[in-house]
């Protein structure tokens, strides 16, 4: 029987509060101080000072580097303009990136890029040999399915770009629940071996970088 009592109390409390409110509004005029102190703000803003003025520090760093590379020289004036752009662009476009990407262990990024470059150069030579010197009927093209362990969109994007850059494979589609990847291979010996190569060489390293 707690519910009727509660409603009873509530109905008794409301007219009193309304009476008090009207009393207040008569007394103070326009100043209707409610819980928040800014009458124009419609929502709560819990960001810290740093999150508000430097929302994505990695994006700022990349933008400054890109600006210096576009200018093709290292001058202090270019650095100042780059910093100004690097601060304003993330602030204005902050609504497009609600969360920061988490990157663990930046040294692994460099080793991953080195392995990627090496694979790109070496495998391109093999595919060039296959394109020029084999007849197209001898090529064993196949569609394969790679089951994924990654969940975050940045990680899946990195894996897709890596698979597409590595010669011999093109990543075509993602399944509707985001758990497997459709890959088209140009000349594959055995499907399980290709899946195992992709998972061992690239996906394990990407999983170490993006949690």
């Amino acid at each position: 029987m707690s519910v009727p009592k509660h409603s009873h109390d509530h109905s008794q409390g409301e007219p009193q509060a309304a009476a008090q409110d009207s009393h207040n509004s008569h007394g103070h005029g326009k100043e209707n101080h409610s819980a928040d102190h800014h009458p124009g703000r419609r929502y709560e803003d819990n960001r810290t000072y740093m999150q508000r003025w430097l929302p994505h520090p990695l994006l700022t760093f990349v933008l400054v580097l890109l600006w210096m590379a576009l200018l093709n020289s290292f001058t202090i004036g270019g650095l100042v303009v780059g910093l100004a752009l690097g601060m304003t662009i993330p602030i204005y476009t902050a609504n497009f990136w609600p969360e920061r990407p988490v990157i663990r262990r930046p040294t692994q990024v460099i080793s991953f890029i080195c392995i990627l470059m090496f694979d790109v150069v070496v495998a391109n030579i093999q595919v060039a040999y296959r394109i020029v010197f084999r007849r197209p009927e001898q090529l064993n093209t196949k569609w394969i399915t790679v089951p994924l362990d990654l969940t975050s969109p940045e990680a899946i994007t990195a894996l897709t770009a890596t698979i597409t850059l590595t010669p011999g494979t093109v990543a075509s589609d993602l399944s509707a629940d985001g758990r497997s990847l459709l890959v088209h291979c140009l000349d594959v010996g055995s499907e399980k071996e290709m899946v195992r190569t992709i998972k061992d060489r690239y996906e394990s390293r990407i999983k170490a970088i993006f949690p």
Partner: peptide, 19 residues
């Protein structure tokens, strides 16, 4: 013509919005 992924849903290009 394509292999099916693991799980019950198909590929994203062919899936409907309800899927």
């Amino acid at each position: 013509k394509l292999p099916k992924p693991d799980g019950r849903y198909g590929w994203n290009t062919y899936a409907s919005v309800e899927d």
